[in-house]
């Protein structure tokens, strides 16, 4: 199987700001080694980091699965946090429920989800209150 996809799995710990972004950094390094187009790498890194940090800030951490094929990078981030009551509203630039403690760290501009939308080719968010949120990101790799 010459075109076998590369699959990666990460666990993201809750409230772990020290290691937040590690999964995104790791995927970025892998994509660099694979020689993927730099713009794709940048787009994926921005989108994935925003989703990863959201799991740390707004949920209780979670898991990330990455699937890299020659055509695209597909990332699924799942958490069992509080869920998002109104996804459309959450997608709006500037909307944030971040508390003062994380705003002090530089988060809470309400630009994370808009960034994910902007830098990905496909974004799907499914969420259920009290159950959790799944964010699915796709970045295409031009041939």
């Amino acid at each position: 199987m010459e075109n076998a996809n590369l699959k990666l799995h990460y666990n993201v710990d809750k409230k772990d700001f020290i290691n937040a972004g590690e999964a995104s950094s790791s995927v970025k390094k892998v994509l660099r080694k694979l020689g993927v187009n730099p713009e794709c790498i940048r787009n994926l890194a921005i989108a994935m980091y925003e989703a990863e940090i959201n799991m740390v800030i707004h949920a209780n951490g979670g898991t990330i699965d990455v699937d890299i094929s020659p055509e695209c990078i597909h990332v699924v981030l799942s958490d069992s946090g509080p869920g998002i009551p109104d996804i459309q509203r959450a997608m709006q630039e500037g909307y944030s429920t971040a508390g003062d403690n994380v705003r002090e760290l530089g988060f809470g501009a309400g630009m994370g989800l808009p960034n994910i939308k902007k830098y990905s080719d496909d974004l799907k968010i499914t969420s259920e209150i009290g159950v959790g949120t799944t964010v699915e990101i796709k970045v295409n790799i031009p041939s």
């Binding site: 700001f17 020290i18 972004g21 995104s24 950094s25 940090i53």
Partner: peptide, 14 residues
């Protein structure tokens, strides 16, 4: 003027 650990993650990724 941000000086916490998240700055490093953002610097690395950008």
């Amino acid at each position: 003027i941000m000086s916490n650990v998240n700055v490093v993650a953002v610097a690395t990724l950008t």
